Simulated scan of single mutants.
Amino acid sequence: MLTLKNDFLTVKINPLGAELTSVQDNESHLEYMWQADKTYWGRHAPILFPIVGRLQDNQYRLDGKTYHMTQHGFARDREFTVVEQAEDHVVLRLTADDQTKELFPADFSLTVQYTLVAHQLSFAATVDNPANTPLTFSLGAHPGFNVPLGDPAADFTDYQVTVSPKQVYQRVPLVGPYSDTQHSVPMDLTKPMALDHDLFDHDAKVLTLNNHETTLMLSSHVNDHGVALTLAAPYVGIWSPYPKQAPFVCFEPWWGLADDVQATGDLETKVAIHHLAAHESFQAAYQITYF
């Protein structure tokens, strides 16, 4: 386990999946991150690559060949190499090998950096295409936060999510695990969204952001603790498992979507897919402030 630390926070990152597993306040020892209780969800903050969400029948076609891949791809279950480590940052990398090519035939390099400054942890990812042919992929993140935070007597419903800018967003409905991009619906977030488990009875709330800088803040009236995640991505998901009464919520920056309900299975035409030219790079980032 890798550790970042400053005067305010101690952060732990697992090279397996380059997954953020813990963020603790040094003074109060308050744990902000979901601790992967398998009763509800056995992960903390997985990195989603080379797909986001689920493929129809867990398979896709590329260059005439069919490949099998489960939800959110394989990066979350692969050991990353530690490229650089210091007290305030760490850099990890995953590259293609024979095992990844059984699932995803492309050459790639996925580099992830976590940087801790004061009360903020920054995440930056770079996808490099070392090949002479385009790289087709999606990328996402899935950090989960404890709810409640710091008050065991508090309840899930004591918390709210505030989205800034405060406006009406377009939401991509999910039909089962699949995106229904042809039937986006408005979601009024001019006021905070009160958390309730029933909000997630049709899976995640997926907001279309169009790469505009957006902040999601988790807060409560019971205390002053919370988190604020800032991103500039095409989409963000807000999720807690249903019908489980799970004591956490995820804010999920997505540079991609689950297969559309009308997906053909062709990766090249998959909804919200990225096409990275030969020898080019793609960058993605988000920041979390803990208070």
Rank of each mutant, 00 (worst) to 15 (best):
T162H: 15
D198C: 00
A204I: 08
D196W: 01
L257H: 13
L174T: 05
V222L: 05
L257C: 11
G237I: 12
L257W: 13
P177F: 03
M217I: 06
V163G: 15
H225W: 03
T190K: 14
A194P: 11
T157H: 01
N210W: 06
D198R: 01
V249E: 01
R171Q: 14
S164Q: 15
D224M: 08
V271L: 06
V271P: 02
V175S: 09
Q262K: 03
K244F: 06
T230V: 09
H221T: 09
A258D: 06
Y235I: 08
L231C: 15
N211S: 00
T157C: 03
V249A: 03
V249Y: 04
A246Q: 04
P192F: 11
T162V: 11
Q245G: 00
G256N: 02
N223V: 12
S184K: 05
D180P: 12
H197Y: 11
G237M: 13
E268D: 08
W239T: 10
V227G: 02
P186M: 13
Q245T: 05
P165W: 13
Q167S: 03
F248Y: 11
L199W: 06
L257P: 13
A233K: 05
T264A: 02
A232W: 03
W254N: 04
M193N: 07
E268L: 07
V163W: 07
L199P: 10
Y235G: 08
A204T: 10
P241Y: 02
L199V: 10
Q245C: 00
L257I: 09
V227S: 02
S240R: 12
G256F: 02
A232H: 07
T181C: 06
K191Y: 15
T162I: 10
